[in-house]
């Protein structure tokens, strides 16, 4: 077993001549709670899409617990659970149908799928939704069913893109608790966010991404160096945080 649950080396992605991700290297230690921070358009989603095998990088490699995602996808995808940013899933199934479908696709035993699906739906408070289709769920419920889908096969690495977006405080606390227990049990979580408080509260490691490049990376304390994470973020990313004489007509 390697020390790093997820290793990104020299990832590059260009879209129509624009460089979205320009050479990202990241080493995510096993058992860490890794936060990927960045302003809008920094390349967080693009990086994570390449890490989970949804988007082919123009250059670079990705390894999940030592297995290359692009040359050995079967093993890598078995160890990996992912929540992609837009809920890109078959949303015209009910919650339990969707979980059953994913379980069967992953080749799990039907009885195991049943038991885990029921437990996940209960814990996440989705059991009441009954036969409501996922497409009719609220935004927060969609995040929760996405998390259930990612957890169903008990992966060793979780990659979550914006898991707390549009989630109400109660559900947010619940998800945080689930993730804490998962990491305490030896799992590794990588999540992206642009909400400082969430990352500051949860993560053991932080990387700040801007303009498709990693600007800062390290444990939370190394990155903060006694300041608040928001100050560090604004300092690293740059950009204005106050208005001058403009917008006087407002």
């Amino acid at each position: 077993m390697t020390d790093n649950a997820l290793v990104l080396r020299g990832l590059v992605k260009r879209f129509d001549g624009l460089t979205a991700v320009g050479g990202v290297d990241l080493y995510v230690p096993t058992g860490s709670f890794f936060g990927l921070l960045g302003p809008n358009g920094a390349g967080k989603t693009t990086t994570l899409s390449m890490a989970v095998g949804l988007l082919r990088p123009d250059a670079g490699t990705v390894a999940v617990l030592g297995h290359d995602v692009w040359s050995d996808p079967v093993t890598a995808k078995r160890l990996l659970g992912a929540l992609p940013d837009p809920v890109r899933t078959f949303d015209r199934l009910s919650g339990s149908e969707l979980l059953a479908y994913i379980g069967l696709l992953r080749g799990m035993d039907a009885a195991v799928v049943d038991a885990r699906a029921a437990e996940l739906l209960d814990v996440l408070g989705l059991a009441d939704a009954g036969r409501t289709l996922v497409v009719d769920y609220s935004a927060g419920m969609k995040k929760k069913i996405g998390l259930a889908c990612a957890l169903l096969h008990a992966p060793r690495l979780l990659v979550l893109d914006e898991p707390f977006e549009a989630v109400d405080p109660v559900s947010g606390a619940l998800i945080r608790d689930i993730l804490h227990r998962y990491v305490a049990g030896g799992g590794t979580v990588v999540l992206s966010s642009h909400v400082m408080e969430v990352v500051e509260r949860l993560c053991s490691h932080v990387a700040i991404l801007a303009g498709g490049q990693v600007r800062t990376v390290g444990t939370l304390d190394e990155v903060r160096q006694g300041r608040s994470l928001e100050d560090v973020f604004v300092h690293v990313v740059g950009g204005r945080v106050a208005t001058g004489a403009e917008l006087s007509w407002l």
């Binding site: 339990s96 149908e97 049943d114 029921a118 009441d128 939704a129 009954g130 036969r131």
Partner: peptide, 17 residues
Amino acid sequence: ARSAGSAGRPASAADGL
């Protein structure tokens, strides 16, 4: 096209699919 959130839950998830 909203499906009724009826309480009738099938015995098992796989059967529901």
